[in-house]
Amino acid sequence: MLSTIDVQLRQRHDLIPNVVTLAQKFMTHERELLESVVAARNQAQLPYRADDPGAVRQHLEAETQLTAGLGRLFAVAESYPELRSSDTIVTAQQTLNEVEGHIAAARRFYNSAVTELNNSVEIFPSSLVAGMVGVQKMPFYEVEDAAARAPVNVADYMK
């Protein structure tokens, strides 16, 4: 199940180098933001153990950070007309929308499987078998995060 979602996430990772390289040319004042996106991508690409709920949680949190970072990057890119009109960024944004759609679908599939697994781990009699073979509850892949929902200070982008 995680491999299904990782296939979709990898497509998102593959998009980032091109976007960041292009953005660097125009967004000279956004170095910190660009660096945070690259750092989030590197963090999300680290190998992890798919049977360890803690490692899976960390991996998914890194992806959530990356989603938020990318969202901010495209939002800030709106205030750079040359960047906004670049063919590469337009194509990247369209591709990202497509990829995000597949990630959302894979996330729903993953979460529905996790619901079933967690119910089996918790509810008798399957909980007995789960306890014996060491199956543990797995974390959900949530997309909500405080940074992404924080109000944007428009004045910052109007300087």
Partner: peptide, 22 residues
Amino acid sequence: LEDTEFEKCFEVYGTDQVEARY
């Protein structure tokens, strides 16, 4: 699917679980 009202009305089958949700 996660929508219980939809699930009461329909049964969904697909060759690709992710694409069905997409």
